[in-house]
Design a protein around this nucleic acid. Structure first.
Lengths: 338, 338
DNA sequence: CCTGGCACTCTTCGCATGCGAGTGCCAGCG
DNA sequence: CGCTGGCACTCGCATGCGAAGAGTGCCAGG
């Protein structure tokens, strides 16, 4: 087990390295932090920390930098979450309150997160699977063509075309619309399949094919993977990555364009609080030199989607975690109000 | 006026520089292109071209590189649009045909453009202002709360909340829905204000406030600037920008996040064909070292939106223009079919 | 167990040098 | 008059070397 002082040394190394972006040596450490011991002692501690894999030196005779493992320890044991200041909170709230619709909420959240953390922000649209149906609308566009519009309690709208096997009259359509809504409005997505299962039986034989098709389109929409959209912002912050960034930035940009990758990334975080994935803890190779800080958010107490930031492993973890948590909280409030 | 050969020299310089990314000298030129003259002659021509501002040398005693003005001449007079090969066309068509809805069409178009040109692709969603109304739907969410859903002929859906000044019955709502659709369905957006102007008069005094509010929300939606969304992709290609890119890439990423900037950029291109804006021709400072190749696209013959790519001024103009034009053409087809 | 001292290692920087690419100019030729 | 070959010149770039500086590891002493 590491002694208390050694942990302090590690903490100091992380803080200094995050600040200066340069390997930190024993002398500089004792000067900036009053550890009460000499550089020589710190050197011994450093040797021990390196032995255990918490820090490393880029070249012989250079300072030390934290390893992924070092950051992990720092995040878990040595640092808390830095709460936002009151003015910051107010700013967040003001900024989000101007939003006019769901798209706008998400867009503003992305901008806000990117600005607060000076990193790349990722916000997942409130997921369909956990939300409830507000309304289902059916429109007849042609005799055998119906448009299905699904409206959720988070204000999201999905539409689908349905090509009917047989012409479908306005009266039948109105009937279906009414029956459908009386059954599913206000219900959770997960319950919908069970609730509409016997609906075709209520219709004339000639309409049943169409009804079934509309229903199956609806069910498809509910589970469809592309429901899980997300928005990204602040990519310009990638230029802050480091001096050697040309090679670093490339795979990151590529990963960011693969929404599937990001969704998986966010999805993996099961923790109810803020989750941090550091460097190689990220499954995707392109993100091996980045850390992802994410958290669930949602109206009411329940998380319906995730948001977070992607940045260099060398980031201000307490500050970033604080910002991410605060933003998630306020977005949840906004969603609950609307 | 420049002699024929000097134009050929300029063309050769542009082609070589685009290929090698390095300043091109007189000797290399005569070797790679058989101009039939000696390096010395080429040097004279180069001096003349430099005099006129078409090329420049980064340092004394280095080769020449084209200036923005040089690229401009190249694009206008010296190079055509390189048509896609048959296999490429097929690939484009196949790739786009799998799209299931408008979002998907746009997303696929972005990916495709980015891949074909190896540059950053920008695709504007089909604009509302020039398209027509397919249907307007009104849903009562609460006694004094109505959701307005607008569906366009391009398959786009916009929704807005309306908080009514007074409770609004289902019957009135149905009435309004019917009247509204009979007037505006199939009409162009531009005509809508005129068509609904006297609609409130058909209603009872108590409902008129709500009707007016619904109508004004509808009109707002029609002109709203945020209607003009766009999708961006292929930002990873920015890393191909050049060796000195850390400073170049930054402002470009920033510009790309400012959708307003991009929309203005695309909007400026009035040309019915492919438009090229080179370097400083772009109003936005951050894009002064990039070129933008854009073109309008749309279902039917008419352009309803723009798409294009953003890349270094040192780009393969004929190829890029060809790809952009081809993609626009096929997207138009796909939109017309759906 | 901490501390000061010391020798050692490596990186970084400045500077001088040589090389090569490319230019500009000039005199000569068709 | 325009093209060509030749030639001197200019720079940028890579190379090599030496000094400086930062940081380490280790050891002996308190």
């Amino acid at each position: 087990m590491l002694s208390e002082r050694r942990l302090q040394v590690l903490r100091a190394i992380v803080q200094d390295y995050v600040g200066t972006e340069e390997p930190v040596g024993s002398k500089a450490l004792t000067e900036r932090h009053n550890l009460g011991v000499s550089p020589a002692t710190v050197r011994n501690d450093m040797a021990a920390l390196e032995e255990e894999g918490f820090i490393a030196q880029p070249h012989t005779s250079a300072g030390r930098i934290p390893t992924d493992k070092g950051y992990r320890l720092f995040v878990d044991k040595l640092a808390g979450v830095k709460p936002m200041t009151a003015p910051e909170r107010r700013a967040i709230q003001n900024f989000l309150e101007g939003a006019v619709d769901l798209d706008d909420v998400v867009a503003r959240t992305v901008r806000l997160l990117a600005q607060l953390t000076r990193q790349v922000a990722v916000v997942q649209y409130p997921s369909l699977t956990r939300s409830t149906v507000r309304h289902v609308e059916l429109l007849s566009l042609a005799p055998a063509r119906v448009m299905l519009v699904l409206i959720t309690d988070t204000g999201r709208v999905e539409q689908r075309m349905v090509d009917c096997p047989a012409p479908f009259g306005e009266a039948s359509l109105a009937d279906l619309r009414a029956r459908l809504n009386s059954r599913v409005a206000g219900r959770r997505f997960a319950d919908v399949p069970r609730l509409v299962e016997d609906l075709p039986e209520a219709f004339e034989a000639e309409d049943r094919g169409t009804v079934s098709m509309v229903l199956s389109t609806l069910l498809e929409t509910l589970v469809e993977e592309n429901e899980e959209r997300l928005m990204i912002g602040g990519t310009a912050n990638l230029t802050r990555f480091g001096h050697d960034f040309p090679l670093m930035i490339r795979p990151v940009l590529e990963a960011l364009e693969e929404q599937v990758v990001l969704l998986k990334l966010l999805g993996e975080a099961k923790d109810p609080g803020v989750t941090v994935r550091i460097g190689h803890e990220n499954a995707h190779e392109g993100l091996n030199s980045t850390s992802v800080v994410s958290v669930g958010y949602g109206s009411g107490g329940e998380a319906v989607a995730k948001l977070g930031v992607v940045g260099p492993t060398r980031m201000d973890y307490p500050g970033t975690m604080g910002a991410v948590r605060a933003v998630a909280r306020y977005v949840g409030q906004i969603l609950a109000e609307s």
